[in-house]
Design a binder for these strands. Structure first.
Length: 283
DNA sequence: GCCTCTTTTCCTGGTT
DNA sequence: CAACCAGGAAAAGAGG
């Protein structure tokens, strides 16, 4: 399926996931992506995989095409690989959207930047290098079987330099139903809520999928519900994942107080007291 | 093979 | 009408 060899799919993911640029916390994903949101100060050849996805997302938005209508997995590649795709490759990867994408990337290649997409261009270069060396891992780390999720559980993240010297959260664990038992299982890799959280914590790797509504309160909103579901499905190796199903899993979190209900607002969720690692200043 | 736990799948019904 | 939201039920998967 994928235009590139899928051999390094995940390794690639993991690899590029950790090396994206950081752009200022512009309210980018705000209103229909009308605002600027090109985090790339470089040519597409140098984009990371997530910048590629960001570009994808935006081109789709610009053309009013549902982003979930193309398989993002087919663009599981960095800018260099993207730029080497042929017209036919784009068709294969994105069907009828292929030509649009091809046209866009061709223009970008020639202009060397993103003029073709946004008129003018400015990036907070000052912010570009503050990429934290702490790698709290990608939302889709293929965690080695033995690896404990605490390892990449970002109780520490760039904005909140480690409030807790001791990694992870010794406190609450699973207080529901088994008060004194500390974690029986560490399910395959990441839990859904952690996956979501990690996307949120990595805006530079989050191509407009989910957005904070209230950072301090832990309220967030899905912008591309189906795209997130696809991503989750990809991580779980389940191509039939949908937002419908993902949201059911999210609703189970209410009872466990990992999430709090936010009524009346579609696609909006809020982290609950049993969700950790999302705060700017973990207390 | 059994258990626990999380997530998936399906579904009915209500809401925006 | 489409896209969500709420949960119940059952079952799948994974690890212990």
């Amino acid at each position: 399926m994928s235009v590139t060899s899928t051999t390094t799919l995940d390794s690639q993911l993991t690899a590029t996931w950790g090396s994206a640029n950081t752009y200022a916390d512009v309210p980018m994903v705000m209103s229909g992506y009308t605002s600027r949101l090109w985090p790339h100060d470089c040519q597409p050849q140098f984009w990371s995989k997530y910048q590629v996805w960001e570009w994808l997302q935006q081109v789709m938005d610009m053309h009013q095409i549902d982003a979930s209508s193309i398989p993002f997995q087919n663009f599981d590649m960095d800018g260099h690989q993207l730029c080497s795709l042929s017209y036919q490759d784009f068709i294969r990867a994105a069907g009828s959207v292929g030509p649009i994408l091809f046209h866009s990337i061709t223009e970008l290649k020639w202009s060397g930047a993103s003029e073709s997409l946004r008129g003018q261009y400015h990036v907070e270069i000052g912010q570009m290098d503050i990429k934290p060396e702490i790698d709290f891992s990608c939302p889709f780390p293929d965690v080695a079987p033995g690896v404990n999720l605490e390892i990449y559980d970002p109780t520490i993240h760039p904005l909140a330099p480690a409030a807790s010297p001791t990694p992870s959260s010794p406190d609450i664990k699973r207080s529901y139903s088994r008060p004194h038992q500390v974690k029986k299982h560490s399910p395959r890799g990441t839990h859904l809520w952690e996956f979501i959280r990690d996307i949120l914590l990595n805006p530079e790797r989050n191509p407009g999928l989910i957005k904070w509504e209230d950072r301090t309160e832990g309220v967030f909103r899905f912008l591309k519900s189906e795209a997130v579901a696809q991503l989750w499905g990809k991580k779980k190796n389940n191509s039939s994942m949908t937002y419908e199903k993902l949201s059911r899993a999210m609703r189970y979190y209410y009872k466990r107080e990992i999430l709090e209900r936010v009524d009346g607002r579609r696609l909006v969720y809020k982290f609950g007291r049993n969700a950790r690692g999302w705060r700017e200043t973990e207390k």
